[in-house]
């Protein structure tokens, strides 16, 4: 489902500070525009990226985002991989529940981001860090 051919090299952005979260948003916006996502889809993807980049910074202790334009033969899209070597998420179901937070936020970051994208996969566990891949396809 998330498979698709990468078009060109994915662009990486380190996430170590507040400003880096802004840079991730701008990078995602650029790639989304180039991939001809509709305005609403661009907005959804950039918003999701903003939530996930902040999670990477706040909960993962920093990490990277890799943004790539992809093509699955029928549609073009944008795929983003967020990776950190933080403590990982122990109870994933709980973390994906609306309103659940350990960081004093609204608890919408993970669950909300999942609703805003087409594909969402997460690989995490205590002590393993967290890798989240999201994809948004053009309509």
């Amino acid at each position: 489902m998330t498979t698709g051919v990468d078009l060109g090299h994915p662009q990486a952005q380190a996430i170590q500070s507040d400003e880096d979260v802004v840079r991730v948003r701008q990078l995602v916006r650029t790639v989304a525009v180039a991939s001809k996502l509709s305005l609403v889809d661009q907005t959804k993807l950039v918003t999701a990226a903003s939530e996930l980049a902040r999670n990477t910074l706040v909960y993962g202790g920093g990490g990277t985002a890799e943004v790539a334009a992809v093509d699955n033969g029928r549609r073009r899209g944008v795929r983003i991989l967020f990776a950190d070597d933080g403590p990982g998420i122990a109870d994933l179901d709980l973390a994906l529940t609306d309103g659940y937070t350990t960081g004093g936020g609204l608890g919408l970051g993970l669950s909300g981001a999942r609703r805003l994208v087409d594909d969402f996969t997460i690989d995490t566990g205590p002590g393993r860090g967290t890798r989240i891949t999201v994809t948004k396809w053009s309509r």
Partner: peptide
């Protein structure tokens, strides 16, 4: 607030 932003906020659950 722009329409695309409002649509996204609704989806986000905010």
């Amino acid at each position: 607030m722009r329409p695309a932003v409002a649509i996204t906020l609704v989806e986000l659950g905010l």
